[in-house]
């Protein structure tokens, strides 16, 4: 089947995914205790005033009516307004998009650049001290809580050495220098986990192929060792690596709330968690749908890439 049909089929297949997400989230939120009207009006509000607030926000409508109204809005690409701040949800998301995307892309690029060669190296030298050292490092990397690493790096680079700012985000429009100086620490902190994860997966996947016949053949034909490893073996080990990288990127885009809090990054993770805590339904629903869409898209790309990397899989 030509790839274009496959892509079309997959895009159509996103409709049920999104529908599942929409229904799931809507029900989960409405069944969760917590009343946005109380969040808005506070202790002093009388029962009558709470009732009026609910009415003004259409929260007193039957669930089905609310759901249909919401879906109708979504179809028109209107995410509604925040119950709490009254601002359009699309504006709230737009405000947070750049920090999140920036950190996600910097993190994932850094991780891949470090982790894939490391994984290949450790598979090649399986059992050597490099292998052992790298495995121990990667394991340590994801067993230390993110905030511990973050605080240690902040203490060293921002407070003691004063090389970097302790917090905040600088948009690219302020120049590459400020952008990187703000993005580097959070990205390094997040990379620790992703380097560990991707390197492990690379090592494992490489070990699966490194002793296969085609690798031996390539070697026998006189290919140089790097060429054997990166050109032949890595290509065939790419599927699990791609899966980890892709899901990692999707996770980073959906927001990394702890890192965002520690570095005070105005990202999507905090927007979502703050909205959950305040029961700001339209924001939560929109965020879920948007991150789901991003995720689905990334997965489509991964699946397409599968066929590029592994000729054994055909569509």
């Amino acid at each position: 089947m030509p790839v274009i049909f496959y892509v079309l089929k997959r895009i159509l297949a996103t409709v049920p995914v999104m529908a599942f997400v929409a229904i799931f989230v809507f029900l989960l939120l409405r069944l969760t205790p917590g009343d946005p009207a109380v969040a808005i009006a506070g202790d002093q509000a009388t029962e009558e005033q709470l009732r009026q607030i609910r009415a003004a926000l259409s929260l007193d409508q039957p669930l089905l009516v609310q759901f249909v109204t919401w879906i109708q809005q979504i179809v028109r690409l209107d995410f509604g307004k925040s119950l709490i701040s009254g601002l359009p949800v699309s504006e709230l998301i737009a405000q947070r998009l750049e920090p999140t995307l920036s950190i996600a892309l910097v993190t994932i690029s850094m991780s891949v650049l470090v982790a894939v060669p490391l994984g290949v190296l450790t598979a090649w030298k399986q059992g050597s001290w490099i292998d052992r050292g790298a495995v121990a490092f990667s394991v340590l990397g994801f067993s230390i809580p993110v905030f511990v690493i973050a605080y240690m790096l902040i203490q060293l680079f921002a407070i003691d050495l004063r090389w970097l700012p302790v917090q905040g985000f600088a948009p690219l429009s302020r120049g590459l220098g400020p952008f990187l100086s703000h993005a580097i620490l959070p990205s390094v902190v997040l990379s620790v986990i992703y380097v560990a994860l991707i390197a492990r997966m690379t090592r494992a996947a490489m070990l699966d192929v490194i002793h296969e016949d085609f690798v031996r053949t390539a070697r026998a034909k006189g290919c140089t060792e790097p060429r054997v490893l990166f050109r032949h073996a890595l290509r065939n080990a790419a599927i699990p690596i791609l899966t980890v990288v892709g899901t990692g990127l999707a996770l980073l885009i959906s927001g990394v709330v702890v890192t965002e809090s520690v570095f005070n990054l105005p990202g999507l993770g905090r927007l979502t968690i703050d909205a959950v805590m305040a029961r700001d339904y339209p924001v939560i629903q929109a965020m879920i749908l948007v991150t789901s869409a991003v995720y689905v898209l990334i997965n489509l790309l991964i699946d397409l890439a599968y066929s590029l990397f592994d000729p054994r899989i055909k569509y």
């Binding site: 700012p165 302790v166 520690v262």
Partner: peptide
């Protein structure tokens, strides 16, 4: 008014003059 959900970060930012 800058929001800082992490109390440790806020103290660091004050110390560094941010």
């Amino acid at each position: 008014w800058i929001n800082m959900p992490d109390s440790q970060t806020a103290i660091n930012a004050l110390s560094s003059g941010e």
